[in-house]
Simulated assay, not measured.
Amino acid sequence: MATLKVAVQKSGRLSEDSLKLFRECGIKFNNGVKKLKAQSHNFPIEFLFLRDDDIPGYVEDGIADIGIVGQNVHDEYQKNVEVVKHLGFSKCRLSLAVPREEDYQDISYFEGKNIATSYPNILKDYLKSKGVSAEVHEISGSVEIAPGIGLAEGICDIVSSGSTLLSNGLKEVETVMKSEAVMVASKSLTEDQQKLVNQLIFRINSVLEGKNNKYVLLNAPNESLDKIIELLPGMRSPTVLPLADKGWSSIHSVINEDTFWENIEQLREAGAEGILVVPIEKMIR
């Protein structure tokens, strides 16, 4: 029987988010503390816990069949693997930053200057696209210290909240790329392994769809049904049930959470009452 070997970052937020997603997909395993491997007992999958920078290479070499990495890591290492799913979590951005006191106007600031980064390939491509010639210094870890010790006039690094830049006297000035977790796969999967990947992606899609949508229940006067149904289209169409009170109905529907908040005032104006919004664990179209 085929088994999928999945490379996951061994620690950090990306690791936590990845393992949470697998558990939400109904895949049970015990990764323990500092374990380098874990086996699921209800899905043919084995987890390998690795450094995130190593994951694309392990997938390319066939040591792992699929892996979860940041889009930034995939783009930087340019390994011969295929992105099979954008996962929508662990979002961040790769940005240029300079000392706070600098009078930064535009990207031409970096012309002829030194930039420290752990992502030299992405940065060089970005500077080339902007027509800027700068010296790129590749360093690993503690990139933020580079301007303070005179190594570079600016840095290019991953930014989430921006607090690390702030604490090091830096300000974000350009977004080089936006990143999120992606699933990458080997290009030499067997037919059985590809079937397992498809099953896994099906489960992931069901979980992600559920997170992005909400189950909505409300009561409304019958004369407002057409207007409310227009605002709550549902997966195919809403469920409408008569209430004990004549002239009133209960409407059940599924709606994207963002759309719900955009329409909430119109729903109330149309006469909707007793509105309940319920999370969806899984959603299969």
Rank of each mutant, 00 (worst) to 15 (best):
I201R: 04
L217W: 01
Y215E: 06
Y215F: 15
I228K: 08
T239H: 05
Q199I: 10
D245I: 13
N198M: 11
L200A: 09
V254N: 02
F202M: 05
R203T: 00
Y215K: 11
L243A: 03
S253Y: 00
G234R: 05
Q199H: 11
G234N: 14
L241C: 03
G234W: 01
P221M: 11
P238C: 07
G247T: 11
E223F: 13
T239Y: 05
V207T: 05
E223M: 07
P238L: 12
T239G: 07
I204S: 06
F202V: 04
N219A: 14
R236W: 06
I251S: 02
K227Y: 05
E230L: 14
Y215S: 08
S250W: 00
D226L: 09
K214Q: 10
I201T: 12
I229R: 14
L218Y: 10
K211S: 12
R236A: 07
A244M: 07
I204Q: 09
G247S: 07
V207N: 06
Q199Y: 03
L225N: 00
L218K: 06
N219K: 15
E209G: 01
Y215C: 08
V240T: 09
I228F: 07
D226F: 05
K227P: 01
L217E: 12
N198K: 13
F202H: 11
W248G: 00
N219I: 13
K214C: 11
V254A: 01
S224Y: 04
E209W: 01
Y215D: 04
V254S: 03
T239R: 03
G247A: 06
S206V: 01
R203F: 10
I229V: 03
L200W: 06
E209Q: 13
F202G: 11
D245G: 03
N205V: 04
E223D: 15
G234K: 06
L243S: 12
N222P: 00
E230N: 15
S206L: 04
A220S: 14
K214H: 06
N222S: 13
N212M: 06
A244T: 11
V216E: 09
A244V: 14
K227T: 14
V240Y: 07
R236N: 11
L241Y: 09
Y215L: 14
P238H: 04
Q199K: 15
K227R: 13
N219G: 07
E223W: 08
I229T: 15
L232R: 02
A220I: 14
G234M: 01
E209M: 09
P242V: 02
P221S: 10
H252C: 05
Y215N: 05
P221D: 12
K227A: 14
W248K: 15
D245C: 00
L218S: 08
G234Q: 03
F202D: 14
D245E: 15
N212Q: 14
L241M: 12
S206P: 01
E230M: 05
L217C: 08
